[in-house]
Amino acid sequence: MRNSDFVVSHAVDATFERGLRSFFEYRDLGIEHATKGQVVAHVIRAAAGTDFSSQPHYHETHFQFVYILKGWIEFEYEGQGIVRLVAGSSVHQPPGIRHREVGHSEDVEMLEIVMPAGFKTQEVESV
């Protein structure tokens, strides 16, 4: 039984839309549809002209991976402190880890892969 479909996504055809965070734009790579909701993959970039703010939160996930393509971003992670990621850096965010974004460059661009696709985000008082 097949539970996934072949999918190709080209940058030349890319469209970015506002998503979970209003100060980011998201490019869907078609993985959610191809895996029938098992996995979501998208490219995230800073949205020009928007103010940044980040409430501490956690995601209800099984797996979350972020790879920085351009620029930089800083997160504060529960039990880890401030972590600065630059182009070429990656992070595996364990399920339920509390975190918040501290800041990012205007040109930040990152790949994020999350399981499941329809994960929930819960805001919390502190990291």
Rank of each mutant, 00 (worst) to 15 (best):
R98Q: 04
A48T: 11
E25T: 12
V66Q: 10
V12P: 01
I113Y: 02
A34I: 05
I73F: 06
G88V: 10
F119K: 03
Y26H: 12
S4A: 09
V8G: 00
H92A: 10
P94K: 02
A87M: 11
Q64F: 06
G71I: 08
S53W: 11
T61G: 07
E60L: 05
H59M: 06
T15L: 00
V8R: 05
G19D: 09
G118Y: 12
G103W: 06
K70P: 01
Q122N: 12
I44F: 02
A46L: 00
E25M: 08
R100E: 08
S53A: 14
M1L: 13
A34W: 07
E32K: 13
H10A: 13
I82Q: 07
G81K: 11
H59D: 12
T121S: 14
F24E: 01
E78A: 09
P116R: 10
Y58V: 03
F63N: 06
E125M: 02
N3K: 12
D13E: 14
D5N: 02
D5L: 04
D51R: 12
E123Q: 05
H59P: 01
F52W: 08
I113C: 07
E123I: 00
D51M: 06
A48Q: 12
R98T: 01
F63Q: 06
G30I: 08
Y26N: 15
H33S: 15
T121C: 08
G88C: 12
R21S: 02
F63V: 06
M1N: 14
Y67R: 08
H42L: 13
F16D: 02
E74D: 09
V40L: 15
R45C: 06
A48D: 14
A48S: 11
L111E: 04
F75P: 00
R18P: 15
V12F: 07
I97K: 05
H57D: 03
H57P: 00
A117E: 13
H33M: 10
V40I: 15
Y26W: 14
V91S: 13
V83Q: 14
G71D: 10
D5A: 09
S54L: 05
T61M: 09
V83D: 03
P56S: 08
M115Y: 02
R21Q: 02
K70L: 10
P56R: 04
L69N: 07
F23W: 15
V12T: 12
F23E: 14
A117G: 15
I73T: 09
E101A: 12
